[in-house]
Design a protein around this nucleic acid. Structure first.
Lengths: 340, 340
DNA sequence: TTTACGAGTGCATAGCTATGCACCAATCAT
DNA sequence: ATGATTGGTGCATAGCTATGCACTCGTAAA
């Protein structure tokens, strides 16, 4: 509480030094404002001398617009999400926004951080949290902050969603597996609460049902390498081993492949077909060459940014927007088996 | 420019509704302030009715403290850096700060974004950019914002650094290689401008020199899997192949392993010893089991946060702090060869 | 020469919260 | 009973920028 020296020079300080009014300083930094070149130079000289940077804080107060967008994310162990985060950051910066990064333990709702974000007057929120119940979403709407929910199909007046077509993709995989000679199917899921995992399972089941198949080995994991490894170990411990395994994401698929090859001595794809989801960089690595679905992260991010632009333009709610982006199959070696 | 409805209720609105003064509202939200329970309840009731959230913006103006810390990062393709980002975020949030995430293309300096950060009045900056010249650092100091530079040993009055002992680690690897029978050495570097890569090379050379070895095959890459792959292809194209390869990070080491095994049919570790740096999760995967150095990311982040705490407490510069954290060798299968 | 106009400038104020200060009503000590 | 303390309360203002408004000049049009 001592008389701490003022850290930043203010526009008033600059004005005094330059011998002009504070308005002149303000107008110097506003593009297109009416100000003579001569005065602008005087101001800039004084500003340079004082290391002046205009503060955005009062502007936020006046305009009710902070240009801050919060990105709420649950974990970056999955390269897909760190890539998405990077794309969002770049895209938002290009649009003139700044990114407030908020980490919430995955499994927790984002309710707890909302009041804090409201206090910073963020213009919008992007949530990559896998869990966001309808109830949370309604709670959220009370704050009247536009929210884009990534890969979680919850929405209301203020909450939009951008998702990948998990059901359709998973469903189509069944055709590939059958063509490649798969007969006994297995699925390794993410956490029970994950909508993405649930949709991929549902789609897989739909595809199987279309061929009259209702037998499906199941194991629950956590979207991580270790979880996929452990799940595969238990799923393949018994006598009745699947020969076509679908994992809810690539990390688990890679863990499963290592388990099958190294612990059980099984060959992929000769003994077991394996596919994942996300197309993370490691999926293309020589040791795995994993068949997987590309979630078009760039496109999904672009769609989300478009929604945010609309929300920024119309100051009201953006309506119940829900965008679904198709997933694209990339077949690599883990499913390249000749049909029987 | 229409008469846009006020989006957020202000403390004055709440005060009017509750029939108290604006001061009372403010004090309701300040822990430990003198306010009667009765009044607090009245205020809270009115606040709930209006969905009031106190704005932090005016507080920033008054206190000259935003509780915003910027993290500047160049790329998250390397899991080591996304893990570091996550740890910083969690740590800063626990300390009551919010994180402003700034992406700068690696290779660019952070000079360009500093004015913007100054405009947001960030309390401090964490830079994980691999490039930060002495000149940039001095430029930076003019803004009087405390900066912690991660893994780049630049510093001045306002810029501190937290680094890992790259030189010592790389140097010690030579002993291991010699004990495991390595005789012809190779090094795959990161981008030429990367200090981390340069230090690891320097340490490796020091270790070799201590044994009178000055022959070292070199290839330059970019810290990525594909770069490591290509570099290994060219390094092992000739007749005089190394039998002990050190890569400046794990991603490149993994790319190199895939190139050696799959393109040249070489065995790792029997034909070539390989080691990397970072201990990213993939290094432990069954297909690679890569020997590497753990950068103790948690400890490095903790040290950086400690510096930021000091900087926050003393409002002045924090002095020329430079902290070096040791790296720890983890030997896995890629160097487990019996000595000749 | 007068009128009109446009460019440029300064004044004053809004925007929202935190806090020093003055003040008031009780409660307590003497 | 009086003075002193404590716990609450409201008033007024600081903090910094953007902008509507009034005003002053030159300059172009009439």
């Amino acid at each position: 509480m001592t008389a701490r020296a003022k850290k930043y020079a203010s526009s008033t300080d600059v004005a005094r030094l330059a011998g002009v009014s504070q308005s002149a300083v303000s107008r110097t930094y506003k593009p297109g404002a009416k100000i003579s070149e001569e005065m602008r130079q005087k101001v800039l000289a004084a500003a340079a001398q004082l290391d002046y940077r205009p503060s955005l804080i009062p502007r936020i107060m006046l305009t009710h617009k902070s240009n801050l967008v919060a990105i709420v994310i649950g974990g970056m162990y999955n390269p897909f999400y760190s890539a998405v985060l990077e794309r969002f950051t770049v895209g938002l910066q290009e649009a003139g926004n700044q990114v407030l990064l908020v980490h919430v333990d995955s499994g927790h709702s984002l309710d707890a951080v909302i009041p804090k974000l409201a206090s910073y007057r963020v213009d919008a929120i992007v949530s990559a949290l896998s869990i966001l119940s309808k109830q949370s979403a309604d709670e959220l709407a009370r704050f009247k902050i536009p929210v884009v929910s990534f890969n979680t199909p919850v929405r209301n007046e203020w909450v939009s969603s951008v998702c990948c077509d998990n059901v359709g993709a998973a469903r189509s995989l069944v055709e590939l597996y059958l063509a490649r000679g798969g007969r006994r199917f297995g699925f390794i899921s993410g956490p029970p609460a994950s909508p993405a995992s649930a949709e991929r399972l549902a789609g897989f089941r739909l595809g199987l049902a279309a061929h009259g198949i209702d037998n499906l080995a199941m194991a629950v994991a956590d979207f991580r390498y270790e979880g996929g490894h452990a799940a595969a170990l238990s799923m393949f411990a018994g006598p009745d081993r699947p020969d076509a395994l679908f994992c809810a994401n690539d990390l688990m698929a890679i863990g499963a492949i290592d388990a099958l090859r190294r612990t059980y001595g099984l060959r992929v794809p000769e003994d077991v077909l394996v596919a994942g989801f996300d197309d993370i960089p490691s999926a293309a690595w020589g040791a795995y060459e994993l068949t997987t679905f590309v979630q078009d992260g760039q496109r999904m991010v672009d769609e989300a940014l478009a929604i945010l632009r609309v929300a920024a333009a119309s100051h009201g709610p953006v309506g119940e927007v829900a965008i679904e982006v198709p997933a694209r199959l990339i077949e690599r070696q883990t499913t390249r088996r000749q049909p029987i």
